[in-house]
Each structure stands twice: as C-alpha cells, then as structure tokens.
Amino acid sequence: MANANPNKQPTVRARIRFAKYGVMRFVGHLDMMRFFQKAIRRAGLPIAYSGGFHPHQIMSFALPLGIGVTSEGEYMDIELTEKVVPENAIQRLNDQMADGVKVLSFVYLPDKSQKAMAAVEAASYVVGLKEPEGKAVHVLARQGADGSAGMGNDGSIFAEMPLEPLFREGLRLFYEEADDIIIIKKTKKSERQLDLKPLIYEFKLSDNAEKTAFLPSKDVGVSNGDQHDLYFYLTLSAGSTDNIKPELVFSHFMKSLGIEEDAYRLAIHRLDLLTRNPEGQFVSLGDAVGLL
C-alpha cells in the first residue's frame, strides 16, 4: 500500500466481519460508516488517523449493502497503531453496537494483502420469498403481452401451479437450462447488453427439507425474523466490475415468469463476500486472510 503520509507511525491492518440485521437494514451505507467511526472511538480502539487539518480514521468498507438488505457478511478494514487481542477488540466493539449490528470476527491482515473492496469477487445471498397474506400470487402468473403465458409455451398449466413447482420450473427455464440471460443494463451514461448467465455462479431453490437448515445464523434473522415460503440461494459476481445485485436478478427472473415484480415480498440477506484463493476457488473474504 502506498504510504501517503511519510511521518505516519507504523500500523497494523485488521479486517472486521459484522452482521447487520433487524431494523438496522434501513440504515444506509454512509450512515453505517459514520456509526462505526463513532463506535470505534467509544470502544477506545487505537485506530490510525490520516494527516491534515481534519484527520479521519483509516477505514474502508467492502461492497456497500443496499437499504432493506440484511447481512452476516459485511467487512471493513481498519488500521490500528498497535495490536489488540482480537477477542478483546470484538468484545469492546460489540459493547458499542446498536441492536442489529454485531461484530463476528476480527483478524489481522498480512502486510501485502488486498483491501477488502479490491478483493471481492462474488457475494452469496439467501432470498426469502413470501406469498402476500390472503392472496395466492401464483395465479398472477398471467399471460404475456404476446398472448403467451408465463414464460413457457404452456401458460395455462403454469398459471395453475402452486408456488413451489412454479418457481422450480421457472428457475429451470430461466437459469439452469438457459444458454444465456441477456439483459439491457442501464447506467446514467449508457445502455449495454449484458449476459447475466456467466455472472450468476449459483441460483437454486432450497428443498423443503433444507429450508430451515438454510436459515442464516441463529441471531441473524432475515428481515425481522419472518418465515418465508421459499428460499433461494444465489452466488453472484460482485466487486468493482460486473457487480450484480440480487434485486436485478430477481427482477428479470420474475419478468421471465410473467409475474409482476412487486407481487411477492422478497427478503434479501447477504451471507458472505467471497474472493478467490490461489486455486481459483471461492473462499470467504474473512477466511482468505491467511491464504494471501
């Protein structure tokens, strides 16, 4: 890392993994940064500061989380002026957390390791889908504009399917058996065609039996701890190039089913951020520390 401040005292870098859940899902990324800056000061961690008239804490976050999304795979890197025993740092930070933020791990980084943001290659999610109370949405799987129903060629059957087979079938056609998933990606400046297929590393619907096993760690509820009817598991390309959000995938998935985008309540929960080990396999951003 380039050393901007030549007089800077030597520092150690640490990576913190935290969970964000419950009502905290409505606190935005910038507000979370400001929250942690204060929490670190209250915790009395020996954080390093930049130079200048208004020094700021040396801290960087990996991949901002959208509003409304919960997570147990948030990471931030900080620099400390001296080492603190990790268990002690976790304890001190957790004493300063709001209800809905919890520090899960604290590890020191080897000198030359990449910053968290630069290391991110993929993100894994669980997405809960819930049928709105009082109305079965699957009958909303309605005829497309061209008269074709749903996404298949046999729309009438489609429309009568119960929730789970409907989505299982839909997923097979949309993802598993599709050669490509071409979408138009709009940015402020341009529009471009993009094939989602190679950027979706995993997209599956959990079996009924698996459902509970798939629930995120005990004290990290998905969206207020609601139970959902279906749980999808996704691993998506993430980072500075080709950052694919689960919302985007679902919006195209729903469209392919001929279902209105907001017909179901989706609860998105990020499970982890992933990087690649030297063998090219995905590993957790937290585990990767030792490998680099």
Binding site: F26, G28, I67, Q96, A98
Partner: peptide, 14 residues
C-alpha cells in the same frame, strides 16, 4: 423502502 432516509423513522439509535 420508498421514503427518503428511512433511518429517520426506526429509532434504535445509540
């Protein structure tokens, strides 16, 4: 999710 700065309405502050 539809309003500006939802964190205004959730309480739960330090």
């Amino acid at each position: 999710l539809s309003v500006d700065k939802a964190a205004r309405y959730i309480g739960n502050e330090i």
